[in-house]
Amino acid sequence: MGMKFWVLLQRDVLVAWRKKSNIYQPLVFQLLIVTMFPLGLGAGAQTLQKIAPAVVWILALISTLITLENIFKDDYEDGSLGLYVLSGLPLPVAVLAKAGAHWLTTGLPVILFAPVIAVLLHLPGYAYGVLMLSLLMATPIFSLLGTVGSALIMNLKNGGMLLSVLIMPLLAPVLIFGAGAVLETTLGNNPNGHLALLAGCFVLALTLAPLAAAAAIKVNLE
């Protein structure tokens, strides 16, 4: 089982690595959008600093959101979904492997890129630690919930919009706790409460999302 898990994860990372646009597109997207904020809001450091925690966070979220659709859709369309669904590997474990690979190829770059966005928005220096920590806990949640959304729409032609509607309510609490943690830090407050709740969301997503995604795949294959 462990072997199959790693092979699936490895394969997905390799596929993403071969098609590098998958990896850099979300980052380019973030850069494009962040440029629009000073253009629209005015370049005053004070204004930007105020919205920085929220914008960095929302950009991380949206740039991940646009990559979620294909987690299972690609595999469904080229038939390779069958190779792991029928492999005897428990489906929730396969989902975990898919989520892991998605995090490595999307979540991790987003975390590493976040300081760049933060600099552009004048985020105060002492908030960087909490920003990185909050994204480190939240990006796996994006990937995990993404598997659920992607599994629900995997055989739809234009499922992207529906996917956003389906997982936005799931992501709202994550955004509240994550962006809240950074905001509290910039205001000089203790972000630990937010971070603890974010960790709780992570544990919940880790346990329930693979089951939900596996159930959705099974229904879709019926």
Partner: peptide, 26 residues
């Protein structure tokens, strides 16, 4: 099962595709 959707990943080499299928099947 070899279906209409063949199960090959376009961006992987033939060897990698075959190796993946083999390992997934134990």
């Amino acid at each position: 099962y070899v279906g209409h959707f063949l199960g090959n990943k376009a961006s992987l080499t033939c060897l990698e595709n075959l190796n993946f299928a083999a390992t997934m099947n134990g």
